[in-house]
Design a protein around this nucleic acid. Structure first.
Lengths: 204, 204
DNA sequence: CCTGTTTATTGAACGACGTTCATTTGTGTG
DNA sequence: CACACAAATGAACGTCGTTCAATAAACAGG
């Protein structure tokens, strides 16, 4: 039994988030329960509620970490490419690779976003916006005649689409993909999409 | 209290599926519980387990109905268009409209598909395949130089993408869409995608 | 009409869930 | 050493899915 002052509030907070991630990675979203999480850090349920508002609060904070990791992962892989188009392909490959590599957390993130009835927390929106920013940056060189708004909208459309394809892969539903893998699908999508996009928005 | 022989097994089965749909429509996926469902048809929990394997079985059977309704809805709206391209746009509009119109059931269907660990039931796969068939039929006239496999793959790519966009709308996450609505997004997607697809696979 | 058998239906019971809060227990102060 | 304070507990509440011994309704034979 953990004793008074063994750990500060902040330490318990971090221990719980770490343990929650381990549980989610090992057993999936539904495997996370208050009692299991408390046991994992050698405290009892009650203590969790001194540090978090409720279980949803834990999930939300794990998701914030996931968004940070996702952004860092994508940024590290969106370096300068020879061809501007290649940057978009590279980003999509990185997105799919992240989801594959960190499937349970990626899953939890988007199940949370989907299930959340009302508005997302502001910090969430801001982090998602940063991810979209990477897509916009990759798309901009391909559309020198497009306004910032047009690039933004195209980025959202393209990424919602890549995300849809990614969902197939993560939920292991490639049986629905007609024999392709997610990378091939997203490649076909981007190739065709960019052809249209460039012909509309790029000079020369 | 319902009495012996008031209803046949089959009647109870149908009553339960009807009631389950009403509950899901009224209160969402998570609002469906065994006790609530039993009360809605004036039986007790035990009776449900004589007719269904478990709650998941109920959900699966409701989803089969949803897939049938979705197919019928799309088919009714995929009639002959003047331009072949318009058929694809019409299908996407119909898909989004269905999801909007029947959001709780549409949601439950795809949450189930995503959450299901292993393989989907064969009947599910077959019904999803029928929906994809509609997309392939709309795509085929635009690619007279493409093989059946290429059309099939393009249909899956395009529909996974439309689905991704649709998810934004249904989970009321249009804040992430850069000021567009789902119809505009899917229109942009299809327009650009088809331009690339036609230029690769269509003669003349 | 009564009795015994069959079987449809029940609902209490189990373990697990999220959440709360009166109680306990260790810590630091006077 | 006793008091006050606060950290931590864990029993309790109402929910969940699921099971299965017990019950009660329908029917068959006399």
């Amino acid at each position: 039994m953990a004793r008074r002052n063994d750990h500060s509030r902040e330490e318990i907070h971090q221990m719980a988030l770490d343990a929650a991630e381990r549980i989610v990675v090992a057993e999936g979203y539904k495997g996370l329960s208050a009692r299991k999480l408390a046991a994992a850090i050698d405290y009892t349920v009650g203590t969790l509620y001194l540090v978090f508002e409720n279980l949803d609060d834990v999930v939300r904070q794990v998701n914030e970490r996931t968004l940070d990791k996702l952004y860092a992962w994508l940024q590290a892989r969106s370096g300068a490419s020879t061809r501007p188009e290649e940057a978009v392909f590279a980003l999509a490959r990185a997105y799919i690779a992240y989801a594959e590599n960190d499937a349970p957390r990626w899953n939890m993130l988007f199940e949370y976003i989907a299930a959340q009835g009302g508005a997302l927390p502001a910090s969430h929106l801001q982090k998602v916006g940063k991810v979209f920013g990477l897509v916009e940056a990759a798309l901009a060189p391909l559309a020198d005649r497009a306004s910032a708004t047009e690039v933004e909208q195209a980025a959202r459309v393209l990424w919602a689409s890549v995300h849809g394809i990614c969902l197939l892969k993560i939920s292991q539903r490639m049986e629905l993909a007609g024999g392709q893998d997610a990378e091939a699908m997203s490649h076909m999508l981007i190739e065709n999409f960019l052809r249209g996009f460039r012909s509309t928005h790029q000079a020369a």
